[in-house]
Amino acid sequence: MSPPVTDHLHSHATSTLDIFDLDRGFRLQLQAMLRRAMSAMYDDIARNIDVAAMRKRGLASVVSFVDLAAAATPLAVGAAIDADGETRLCELSGVGPGNPGARMGLEVRQDFRSLPGTGDPRRYRETVTGAEPVSCGSVRMLLTLVRPFAPAAERLVSETPDELAHLAAHTLTPPHPAAEDLTRVSDDFAVCGLSGDGEGHGGIDGVWGLHHTDTNQYTFTGGYLSALEDLAVRQTHAAGLAAAEHRVHRVQALLRKPFAAGEPYHARGTLHTRAGDTVLVAGIHTLDSDGAPFRHPAVLGRIEGTLPASEPLQNA
């Protein structure tokens, strides 16, 4: 007898905020959310899906898109933070399960709530008296099902694996984001500073190390997030803006090709500004045999931030 079909998986996790989870303004760090979301997601999947059986059959899931957003609300060190999550089986391209060109995967959403803190460095462990928990951030991830060791034409999974047959198959609407979804910038934003094509123009040259990797054998998603946040700091500084006051509150990234330890990379992007808002469209590029970055990035990111309202913008 077939098991009942479940619409989606649900997870709930509670943890405690530590000093390194919050920035100078006691706002939730994107990295802190990502690690909690990843942990809750993998625990949820391990409880409900026979991952070992999938791996034995040559199937795996890879993170292909992330969207992290943090609120400006100050929180408190030592306070509880709750994460509620949903995981859905989805056809990612929008054509629907069972149709030609179908691409199966998982959509994961995590919403975070905590009591607001005082924002006072002298009272950094205190929450606001009488306050209710507030939304302080969210994470959305898309995982694409693949056969990583199959020929290129056979790597994408178009049918629901047996190990996921107990989950209802949804059509992702809108479909999996594409490059144009991340690179589109409103006309009322102005290009600020230089394009960042080189090390001296706000670009970053680096090498991924063993400490960037995880047990999936490649660079952890948080490593790409760090590189994009670092690039945003360099670009705002290079443009003569207040880098110390620039707060990144949202990062979206398309993860097209994973990096391994020992691989060099080049990260570059273009910063756009509008009043106190910033948008950096950036890429992390692999290098060819001559050390030049490939045209299309292996990781494409959109980094949104804010500057103090009084900060003069020096657009070029």
Score class of each variant (00 low, 15 high):
Met54Asn: 04
Ile19Gly: 03
Ala260Pro: 06
Arg24Asp: 07
Leu106Gly: 03
Pro4Cys: 04
Gly262Thr: 06
Met141Glu: 08
Gln235Ala: 09
Gly305Cys: 08
Glu229Trp: 08
Glu126Asp: 14
Ala150Ile: 12
Glu245Tyr: 01
Pro74Phe: 02
Gly209Leu: 13
Val146Trp: 02
Gln235Phe: 01
Leu17Ala: 07
Glu91Gly: 09
Pro121Phe: 00
Thr144Ser: 13
Asp230Ser: 15
Ala169Trp: 07
Leu231Tyr: 05
Ala168Leu: 12
Tyr124Val: 14
Val185Lys: 00
Ala102Asp: 04
Arg113Ser: 10
Phe65Ala: 09
Leu300Val: 06
Val128Leu: 14
His10Cys: 10
Thr160Phe: 03
Leu225Tyr: 11
Ala232Asn: 06
Leu92Ala: 01
His272Asp: 12
Ile204Glu: 07
Arg184Lys: 12
Phe112Met: 05
Glu126Asn: 10
Ser114Ala: 15
Ala253Met: 08
Arg36Asn: 03
Gly276Phe: 11
Pro121Ala: 00
Arg47Trp: 11
Gly206Val: 07
Pro97Met: 08
Pro174Ile: 13
Thr173Pro: 02
Gly276Lys: 12
Ala298Glu: 04
Ala60Met: 08
Leu287Gln: 06
Glu132Trp: 03
Arg256Glu: 08
Asp188Tyr: 13
Glu132Gln: 12
Val157Gly: 04
Arg103Tyr: 07
Gly203Thr: 12
Asp67Ile: 06
Ser64Pro: 07
Ala70Phe: 00
Ala275Gln: 12
Leu59Trp: 01
Arg88Pro: 01
Val191Asp: 07
Met33Ala: 04
Pro297Ile: 10
Leu287Cys: 05
Leu156Tyr: 09
His285Gln: 02
Thr236His: 11
Asp43Ser: 08
Phe65Arg: 08
Ala232Ser: 13
Cys90Arg: 01
Ile303Tyr: 00
Ala102Met: 08
Val248Asp: 02
Val157Pro: 02
Ala131Lys: 06
Arg123Pro: 01
Pro297Phe: 01
Leu167Ile: 04
Thr215His: 09
Leu271Ser: 07
Pro151Ile: 09
Leu68Met: 05
Pro161Cys: 09
Pro3Ile: 12
Pro148Tyr: 05
Gly283Pro: 00
Leu17Gln: 02
